[in-house]
């Protein structure tokens, strides 16, 4: 397969491509899912993040 004898190699060659395709399908199928409101914790977190950045 693909000029490679060892199934442990050509299988993983395909697995790499298949898992990438899974990522593409997952991303597209959930493109508009998972929206969440802005919680008060989010605002507090961002204030803290700004302070960390300022230290750096």
């Amino acid at each position: 397969m693909l000029g490679i004898d060892d199934p442990q190699i050509w299988v993983v060659y395909f697995l790499c491509v298949i898992s990438s395709i899974f990522c593409i399908i997952y991303g597209i199928s959930r493109w508009n899912k998972g929206d969440e409101p802005v919680y008060p914790e989010d605002k507090k977190w961002l204030e803290g993040e700004k302070k960390v950045e300022e230290v750096l």
């Binding site: 790499c16 491509v17 898992s19 990438s20 395709i21 899974f22 990522c23 593409i24 997952y26 991303g27 597209i28 959930r30 493109w31 508009n32 899912k33 998972g34 929206d35 969440e36 802005v38 989010d42 977190w45 993040e49």
Partner: peptide
Amino acid sequence: MTVKSNKELNRAVLIGGIFIL
């Protein structure tokens, strides 16, 4: 922690999978 919602993480899977490959 830097993304706004789970939606961004879902979308990031798409780019991440291609990028690592």
